[in-house]
Every structure is written in C-alpha cells, then in structure tokens.
C-alpha cells in the first residue's frame, strides 16, 4: 500500500520539473521575446540535436575530456589529500599553495593555458583537472584527518606497516568523505567542461551552445542547456548509485541537497 503522502513525496521531483517547465512556458508566452523561446520549442529542438551526428561527436568529445580530467584529478587528489590529512609536514607544505589556488576561477587560467597548449583537448582537460582537484583534495584531507587513531593502532598491532595502514585503513575509512568530494568534483567537471569550451571554441557541447547563440538559434541554445542539465542529473544519479554501493557499510550521512537518485 502506498499512502498518498508517500506517493506525493516520491513524485515530488517530477512535479517540480513539470512545474518549472510550466512556469517557463508561461513566462515565455508573457514576455514574447525572441531570445526566450517557450519550453515546448526548446524541448522540440532536443531531438534534432541528438539526431545530428556532428552534435553527438561534439558531445562525446566533451564527455571524454570530462572523464579524463576527472579521472586524473581523482588519481592525483585522493593520495595527496590523504597524505595531507595524516602527515603534518605534507599539510603545512601544500596548504598555502592550495589556499592561493582555491579562490582563482580555474576558467580564468584558460587563456594562459591556451597560449601554452593551444585550444585542443590538452588545455581543456587540464582546466577540468584543476577545477575538480581542489574539492577532492579537501574532502580527502578531512577524511584522512578524521580516521580514528585507535583503528590505526589496531592495524599496527596486527603488523601493518605505515604504507599498508595508509592504503588499507586510511583509504577505506576515509572513503565516504572522499566520495562526497568526488561527487562535488563530478558536477564541477561538467561546469568547467562547458566553461572551457565557451572560451576555447573548437568543439564540444559548450561550443554547440555558443555557436547557436551567435546565430540567434535560441531554441537550440535552450535545448543545449536542457541536454547539459540532463547530463548532470544523469551522471550524478549514476555516481550516487555507485557511491551508495561502495560505502554501504557506512552510517548514513545526512542526505545531500540536490539529489535525483
């Protein structure tokens, strides 16, 4: 038996989406501006983008850069964050460096990176890597720092060496926190991906969007926004599934806001 209340809370996200689209539709009809197509027009433009081979290649290239940038960031940021969390010297060395990098919008580095590396995949992937690394470092650091000392002592008594304790106790113990960072990183990767393509206009989902804007194809612009948003929701939901499975042993942390999974 599903109670009306439960049914309502289950369908709430869907209702919210529909509500947003309705509001959009009404606002657009009321404003009657050329640059603000109705929700229906935008949705109608989605299949034509997804049916176009070149668009798909572009979106595929975007996703590939995002995946590579994110993977490199994960491989770099988790060990660094954990080492910072466990070894004071490492933290004192890297902390000031990260403090300087932290407030700089990574996309602002794009022009310089383009100057050095061109407008190709390399510079865009690098920007994604930079954008994503910081939250993962931060959460890995927090997670590593919070590992119970007695747990490490228990491991040491069993004969685990310091590197073994790092890999086999600190890493799994900090995993819930690390994955929280990775989730933030995933969304940031998507954002940085679009931003980098906005600056280095060569290929990708962002490029389709801004080309359409240049050509005043506003329905395509909004359709691309819908597609990119849907990609974000999809990636996030898939990641949440994976995360839930990886840390099924962990005490449920408070639910994060903004989850469609």
């Amino acid at each position: 038996m599903i109670t009306p209340g439960a049914a309502l809370s289950k369908s709430a996200p869907l209702l919210a989406c529909i509500g947003l689209l309705c509001a959009w539709q009404v606002a657009s009809l009321a404003l009657q501006t050329e640059s603000f197509p109705t929700a229906l027009e935008a949705i109608r433009a989605v299949p034509s983008i997804l049916g176009d081979k070149e668009s798909l290649v572009n979106i595929g290239a975007s996703i590939r850069r995002m995946a590579i940038g994110l993977s490199l960031a994960v491989l770099f940021a988790i060990p660094l964050g954990l080492l910072m969390g466990r070894i004071k010297g490492v933290a004192s060395f890297f902390n000031p460096l990260l403090m300087i990098i932290y407030p700089v919008p990574k996309a602002a580095l794009m022009p310089i990176i383009m100057l050095w590396m061109g407008v190709g995949d390399m510079s865009k992937t690098l920007v994604i890597f930079l954008g994503v690394s910081l939250p993962i470092i931060y959460h890995s650091f927090q997670g590593g720092k919070a590992v119970e000392e007695k747990m490490l002592w228990s491991g040491a008594a069993m004969g685990l060496s310091a590197p073994q304790r790092m890999l086999r106790i600190v890493l799994p113990a900090a995993l819930p926190e690390i994955l929280t960072g990775c989730r933030t990183g995933l969304v940031l990767a998507l954002i940085t991906m679009v931003t980098s393509e906005m600056i280095a206009r060569q290929s990708g989902a962002g490029n389709i969007l801004f080309n359409a804007l240049d050509m005043a194809q506003y329905d395509t612009v909004f359709a691309m926004i819908i597609i990119i948003g849907a990609m974000g929701i999809l990636f996030d939901a898939a990641f949440e599934k994976l995360r839930g499975w990886l840390v099924r042993w962990s005490k449920p942390q408070h639910d994060m806001p903004l989850s469609f999974s």
């Binding site: 007695k150 228990s154 840390v247 962990s250």
Partner: peptide, 21 residues
C-alpha cells in the same frame, strides 16, 4: 619500540574496521 602482534589491544572505542563485516 613499537606495536607488534605479541601485544593485542582492545579499546573502549572498539576501533573496528567499519568497511569489513
């Protein structure tokens, strides 16, 4: 000079490995 398997600790905080059953 350091911990070893000849001395096994049991702590008030249990200190179990939560990711292991």
């Amino acid at each position: 000079t350091g911990p070893g398997p000849d001395r096994g600790p049991v702590f008030q905080e249990f200190a179990l490995f939560p990711w292991k059953n």
